[in-house]
Every structure is written in structure tokens, then in C-alpha cells.
């Protein structure tokens, strides 16, 4: 007969597990405390989320009106609005989506479908994992040096185009990783079936694999875009302005105008000492959070549909 003590000394358990106590009530008591701590952690995290949202909503809801959405920022808090920031955010996000979707998905397809398990793929994979963990402000310095200064003739300096390119580089790793995961989830029997019919690799990807993976890819892209929409630090670093009293023209020239975005407007309002501006900031945060929630909602909807189909 082995006693429980000896069994618990096996190397799958931690070394001090031999302090086996047969006093079950006290062990259950520790269990109860541990369980309570675990639940407390979740409750605390969610409470913070609720308090944060409630506080912002409470402060800012009185500021949400048509005037707030359609006027330019001003020194007088009562007349101030976020039109230029809102339009700037829409411009930048449209461009980021336009750049990052083809580049990120294309790179993901290339890595996963065309050169999987090669030396080059390994290098790019390690590189992307590292890039995904680089702080966003470093991307701001990259944008400042490369897009604002070195590529000045193309971007025109601290402009919408520079901002969009910087944010594109920032979210590319996320999109590439999401694309590869969705492609990997498509069963390889489908690929084999396509090859057996005599299709080229690209035909198989285009006609069979990509449509299957598309909902997952879209989810990843939307989540990446919702990361970009809230990014403040890289755009401050490349020099987005806080006071813009005009809208970019709806033409190619619009790409080369200076701009502001919602998070920067919020940052500017929060960092002012007057309490009136803090209310404006709360209003700006509400607009930002509504846009974010919409994007997240679409992503979750796509994911659920995707999971039901499989």
C-alpha cells in the first residue's frame, strides 16, 4: 500500500506537496478563499470597466448634441465641437483600411499558402511577432523620420497620408497574424481537392480557401482597425495638430493636409486645466467609444456566424 503522501511526491506535483494535510475542512476553507479571490479578480476588472464607462457617460452625455458634432474646436468650451477631429478620424481610418487590408491579407496568404515552413517564412514570422510587441510610440518615431521627413515630397510632411501610413505599419502585424490563423483553420482536405482538380495554387487559394477564411480575416482586420482608431501616441509623435478649423478637401490634395483625430482632440481637452474642457473630453470619448463598440460588434457578429458555419 502506498500512502497518499508518497503518491503526491511524484514529480508532476510541486515539490512541497508532500505536506499533505488530511484535515479536509481546513483544506476546503483554503479552497473557498482561493475561489473567492479568483471571482473577486474578475469582478474587480469588470467593475472598473463599468465605472469607467459610467463615469464618462455621466460626464459627457450632456455635451452630445448636433452642435458638438458639427462645430470646430474653439477656445470657448461652450461653442467647441469635434467636427475636424471626427472627419480626420474618418479620413485616416478609411486610408488605413485601404492600405492595410490588401497588404496584410496578401502578406498573410503569401506566408501561409505559398512559402509555409521555409526559412524565409521563419524569419518573417519571428520578425512579425517582434513587431507586434513594439510600443506604438516607436512607430510614431518611425513615421516622423521616414514619412514626415525622408518622404516629405510624397507625403507633404505632417499630413493625413503620413498618419495613415504610420498606423498601417502599426496594425499590419495584427492583420497578418489574424489572416494566417484563419487560413490555417481551413481544412487541408479542401486544398487537396482543389489540386486534384488541376487548379494552380493561386486558383485554389482564390476560389476555395480565401472565401472560407474571409469571415475570420475580416474579424481580425476590424479588430486591428479598432486598435488603430484609438491610437494617440504615434500620431502625436508625427505631429498631428490639436486645433484644426477646416476640413480637408475631398480630393487627392486632402491627403496632404494637416489633420487632427478624435483621440488627440480628447487628449488636448483632458490636458487643459478647466473643468469645462474635461466635459468636452468626456463627450469626445463617448463618440470614440460608440465607433469602437460598433466595430467590435461587427467583429463579434462575424465571428459568431463563422463559428456556426463550421
Amino acid at each position: 500500500m502506498t500512502s497518499p503522501n508518497q503518491v503526491l511526491q511524484g514529480d508532476s506535483c510541486q515539490p512541497n506537496a508532500y505536506k499533505f494535510s488530511p484535515a479536509l475542512p481546513s483544506r476546503y476553507k483554503t479552497d473557498g478563499i482561493f475561489k473567492a479571490l479568483a471571482w473577486a479578480a474578475v469582478v474587480i476588472s469588470l467593475t472598473v470597466l463599468v465605472v469607467l464607462l459610467a463615469d464618462v457617460a455621466n460626464d459627457g452625455i450632456s455635451r452630445i448634441n448636433w452642435n458638438f458634432l458639427t462645430s470646430f474646436p474653439s477656445r470657448r468650451p461652450a461653442e467647441s465641437g469635434l467636427l475636424s477631429a471626427l472627419v480626420g478620424t474618418i479620413w485616416v481610418m478609411a486610408l488605413v483600411a485601404l492600405f492595410s487590408f490588401p497588404i496584410g491579407v496578401g502578406a498573410g496568404i503569401f506566408l501561409e499558402e505559398f512559402i509555409a515552413d521555409s526559412f524565409f517564412e521563419n524569419i518573417v514570422e519571428v520578425n512579425i511577432a517582434n513587431l507586434a510587441a513594439v510600443p506604438s510610440i516607436i512607430y510614431g518615431l518611425l513615421g516622423l523620420q521616414v514619412f514626415v521627413r525622408w518622404l516629405f515630397p510624397i507625403t507633404g510632411g505632417r499630413t493625413i497620408l503620413s498618419g495613415a501610413l504610420t498606423l498601417t505599419l502599426l496594425i499590419l502585424p495584427i492583420i497578418i497574424i489574424a489572416t494566417r490563423e484563419s487560413l490555417r483553420a481551413v481544412p487541408s482536405s479542401l486544398r487537396q481537392a482543389g489540386f486534384a482538380l488541376g487548379a494552380t495554387r493561386w486558383q485554389v487559394v482564390r476560389e476555395i480557401i480565401f472565401p472560407q477564411a474571409l469571415p475570420g480575416i475580416l474579424t481580425g482586420v476590424i479588430l486591428a482597425l479598432s486598435r488603430a482608431i484609438g491610437e494617440t501616441a504615434p500620431l502625436i509623435t508625427i505631429g498631428a495638430l490639436t486645433f484644426i478649423a477646416f476640413l480637408p478637401p475631398l480630393s487627392l490634395q486632402g491627403l496632404r493636409t494637416t489633420f487632427s483625430v478624435l483621440p488627440i482632440q480628447v487628449f488636448n481637452w483632458v490636458s487643459r486645466p478647466q473643468a469645462e474642457f474635461h466635459l468636452l473630453a468626456a463627450g469626445g470619448i463617448i463618440v470614440l467609444m460608440v465607433m469602437l463598440l460598433l466595430m467590435n460588434g461587427i467583429a463579434i457578429y462575424l465571428r459568431n456566424r463563422f463559428q456556426q458555419n463550421r
Binding site: 474578475v42 476588472s45 469588470l46 472598473v48 470597466l49 469607467l52 463615469d55 464618462v56 479588430l223 479598432s226 486598435r227 482608431i229 484609438g230 491610437e231 494617440t232 501616441a233 483621440p263 480628447v266 487628449f267 483632458v270 474635461h278 473630453a281 468626456a282 470619448i285 470614440l288 467609444m289 469602437l292 467590435n296
Partner: peptide
């Protein structure tokens, strides 16, 4: 919890 992760950092700064 993922929603908490998606809150922009400037909102946390306000908070």
C-alpha cells in the same frame, strides 16, 4: 474582458 483591452489608452488617461 477583451472589451476592457480594447479601451483606447487616452480614455484610461482621462480615467
Amino acid at each position: 474582458l477583451e472589451l476592457l483591452a480594447g479601451v483606447p489608452s487616452v480614455v484610461f488617461g482621462y480615467f
